[in-house]
Design a protein around this nucleic acid. Structure first.
Lengths: 184, 184
DNA sequence: CATCAAATATGATGACCGTCATACTTAATA
DNA sequence: TATTAAGTATGACGGTCATCATATTTGATG
């Protein structure tokens, strides 16, 4: 995002930026898999191939990382939604992919909203703002009237959230299927 | 639930049961307000008017308390849904009440699923089973074809979850309104 | 009234974690 | 090549928390 202009940068700029992005990327994945509270800063850094001490050269706090991770995750989701929309032959398949068993079983590579919305709701204004901006950008990619797009987003997110929270695979599948049916 | 038959019960049975219920009730409220991870056992016990040490006379672990709290919260929601259904004059007002500003702003007295589903999804089979049983009981109270009930539940839960996660009150209201409109 | 175990209170213990202090490493600049 | 500050690593600190150990209190029973 913002690259400060400095006289001396003894470490290559692009390498530092790459590390920064790797931290955010791994954080985003881990947070989506296990939630903010169940992932430590040290764990994120290890996943990024660094030690915990280096963290504070990149972020001011864990909260800042959470915000960056949510913003990143929303960007990824936006790209997927836009690709789904522009892809003519896959008309209507965005909901199918969203409400798939694969998405349900792989939160770490799935929608940030379906994984972290409730934790975001209890967090800082900055985090909620990052979440909101992502949602606002995704809504047009869903298409149709804004009111309908919001409704469809709510139903899809609610469907995946419910499907992940129940115990029986049978019911979980039924939830995904039901929401797909009613949306289609 | 299960009251063991013992020769000696030096503390009055009903008082112990009342304390037990108070612990679950306060836990349910606190968990819905701030999530499992952000509420300590000691805090729950203090809210119930006891000290932390007494906790393990009532529950084997915090996880057990979480399960009991979710089961309790689901029962409360079931009661509300059933009352809404039997109340003829308030036809269709269940969704209105569910998607209200009041519900959004008072998670501690609101739907357990809209508050804790994502944390439940990452938790134990027992917890997911308690969540699931609650959902299964609530679905008939929503009414209509089962497929539709599931869809409506997903949309309503998703709507409240989204409304709570965004920063702008304007957008939050719009989400509640949009889902209400499309469901009506 | 003495006894008993259930329930409670107080106080540890051990683990985890966010953050900071400090020293070291890096490679572009002068 | 010496210098510089960005970036990294190691280690520590302080706090929180779930859980357990231990002692105390309770009140129905004998």
């Amino acid at each position: 995002m913002e690259v400060a202009i400095r006289k001396f940068m003894r470490y290559p700029v692009e390498e530092t930026a790459a590390k920064h992005e790797r931290i955010v990327k791994e954080a985003s994945r881990l947070f989506r898999e296990r939630g903010f509270e169940n992932v430590s800063v040290g764990e994120v850094m290890k996943a990024a191939g660094l030690t915990h001490g280096a963290f504070y050269a990149h972020f001011g706090s864990k909260e800042e990382l959470q915000t960056a991770a949510v913003a990143y995750g929303q960007k990824v989701s936006l790209g997927r939604a836009q690709r789904s929309k522009s892809n003519k032959k896959s008309k209507g398949s965005f909901a199918d992919r969203y409400l798939s068993q694969w998405h349900r079983d792989n939160p770490g590579d799935g929608c940030t909203m379906a994984a972290l919305a409730q934790e975001v709701a209890r967090s800082t204004p900055e985090l909620k703002a990052a979440f909101e901006q992502g949602l606002e950008e995704i809504l047009p990619a869903i298409g149709g009237e804004r009111k309908e797009a919001i409704f469809q987003a709510a139903a899809m997110i609610g469907g995946v959230v419910l499907a992940r929270a129940v115990q029986s695979p049978r019911l979980s599948d039924e939830i995904l299927w039901s929401v797909r049916q009613e949306l289609g």
